[in-house]
């Protein structure tokens, strides 16, 4: 909550170094942000190649326009918003980020290997992943931004180009669905044992 905690100060210093042409700082920004950006990009666009190309172009443009950039309180937020703009421009011909689930089959959960979290059975995560795929694309995106990338509702609204109420609605309706359906699955599993 404090505007200038250590992490934010470090980030600002690195950002300023980058703006003044420090290549090491630029590399540092790339390395801290690239996995998160690819994760998010792949969640909203099924074409992994296109996502990688967009991240690449994003950083090239970032470097080339560095002198014109303002200080930012969150580099991550700035990059996520820019990446989304890029990707939605790319997919505009066929309506940007459709609400339907046309792409959902691409991320078939049964063929992914799950990261272990020792507290949670892989089973439970798998059930959750399957249920998440039943949400609309935009609900999935909002859940990803909030619970994986830790953005606030305000930031999510801005990244997704929505007003605050709509963003909150997306998240809560998504959560409600997950809660009801994941619970249901747990219940079924209990009956089986």
């Amino acid at each position: 909550m404090e505007p200038f905690n250590d992490q934010a100060t470090d980030e600002l210093l690195i950002w300023r170094a980058f703006k003044s042409g420090d290549e090491a700082a630029f590399g540092e920004i790339y390395r801290t942000q690239v996995q998160g950006l690819l994760n998010y990009g792949n969640k909203i666009n099924p074409d992994r190649q296109q996502v990688q190309d967009s991240v690449q172009d994003l950083f090239i443009e970032l470097w080339n326009s560095r002198e014109r950039l303002k200080d930012t309180s969150s580099v991550k937020f700035y990059l996520f918003r820019s990446l989304r703009n890029k990707l939605s421009k790319l997919s505009r011909p066929d309506h940007s980020f459709p609400l339907d689930n046309a792409y959902d089959t691409l991320s078939d959960p049964s063929v992914t290997f799950y990261i272990f979290d020792h507290e949670i059975e892989a089973e439970r995560i798998e059930r959750l992943q399957k249920t998440i795929l039943k949400l609309s694309r935009r609900q999935q995106e909002a859940i990803n931004l909030r619970y994986f990338h830790d953005f606030s509702n305000d930031e999510i609204a801005e990244i997704m180009g929505l007003n605050y109420q709509s963003a909150c609605k997306l998240i809560y309706s998504g959560l409600k669905f997950l809660k009801e359906n994941v619970k249901l699955f747990t219940f079924i599993m209990l009956l089986l044992r």
Binding site: Q35, L38, K43, Y114, I120, I125, L128, Q129, Y147, F148
Partner: peptide, 10 residues
């Protein structure tokens, strides 16, 4: 679980 479900690494 929500966090783990979103995990991916290039």
């Amino acid at each position: 679980a929500l966090k783990a479900s979103q995990q991916s690494r290039e």
